[in-house]
């Protein structure tokens, strides 16, 4: 079932493209208005360019007329790669933090009660509010001679969104073994560490995988929003904004950048899918 996930993702993407063209075909160019209120959007080429126009735009130079300018496609790809790197970094950082937090909460039962409410509360602080905060703090930090870079803020903010589902999923996974299984390990004179490695971690995998999938999506969204709200350049988030602002008369460039962001999400999902395959053996361990 799950091995078909990438296929399903691609199929979903194709469906979206088809839907887009269908709307363009069926809805009149001026949209549909009922009593002066537009209920369906304009579908002329300025508002909804054809998918092929967007794709064709990828080959155009970024700055019209300049011979040495790189094509839009290259700009989008490099922006998407930059953001992907930050999002994956955020996912790894947040994932590690989430796992460690869950282990600590599990090891010291008291911490679970003391910390979990704050973990939940942390997620209710809007990203837009913490982004400038992190960037502001980051600007004052220099670690062992290394000055804080704007992209590091983006990665930290991305990890801030990613750690939560991992911490919650991991904690649930660690406590998932049946009492009889835990007692069996005790009867075999296995210590905390052995029980963790041989029982709790394998049993946690089926809870962890969906959590990591959520975390990956959160990390990508977090990275894009963080780029925009911290003004970090080089990523796809910034590119979408700058194309949108300069795109008077040519929205297809902006859509090309958005397409890049969508592909980025698919790639992140595929990366998690690879993890899924690697841990296949532990998948059916929920009893």
């Amino acid at each position: 079932m799950r091995s078909r996930t990438p296929l399903a993702a691609v199929a979903g993407f194709a469906l979206l493209v088809a839907l887009w063209e269908l709307v363009k075909l069926l809805v009149p160019a001026d949209g549909v208005s009922v009593g002066g209120t537009r209920v369906l959007p304009r579908t002329d080429d300025a508002a909804m360019p054809h998918v092929w126009t967007v794709l064709a735009r990828l080959g155009d130079p970024e700055v019209a007329g300049a011979a040495a300018a790189r094509p839009v496609g290259v700009a989008v790809a490099s922006g998407a790669l930059f953001t992907l790197g930050l999002a994956l970094g955020g996912l790894v950082l947040g994932g590690l933090l989430g796992v460690v937090l869950a282990l600590v909460m599990h090891r010291v039962g008291l911490v679970e009660r003391a910390v979990l409410p704050y973990v939940v509360a942390s997620q209710t602080v809007p990203l837009i509010a913490i982004a400038p905060l992190v960037a502001g703090w980051g600007g004052k930090i220099a670690i062992a001679g290394w000055a804080w870079q704007p992209w590091a803020s983006v990665m930290v903010i991305s990890s801030y969104l990613a750690f939560f589902p991992v911490a919650v999923g991991m904690l649930r996974g660690l406590t998932s073994p049946a009492r009889a299984d835990v007692e069996l390990f005790r009867a075999m004179a296995a210590g905390w560490w052995t029980t963790l490695v041989r029982l709790r971690l394998p049993a946690a995998v089926p809870h962890l995988l969906p959590a990591v999938r959520l975390a990956a999506a959160a990390a990508v969204v977090g990275a894009i929003v963080a780029e925009i709200s911290t003004g970090t350049t080089g990523g796809i988030g910034r590119l979408i904004i700058s194309y949108a602002q300069s795109a008077t008369g040519d929205p297809s460039r902006m859509y090309a950048a958005i397409l890049g962001a969508a592909v980025l999400g698919l790639v992140a999902a595929a990366a998690v899918g690879a993890l899924d395959v690697g841990l296949r053996r532990y998948r059916g361990s929920v009893r």
Binding site: A180, D181, S285
Partner: peptide
């Protein structure tokens, strides 16, 4: 050994 075999599925 208990009533449930309690084998580890992985």
């Amino acid at each position: 050994a208990f009533q449930q075999a309690g084998l580890l599925e992985w």
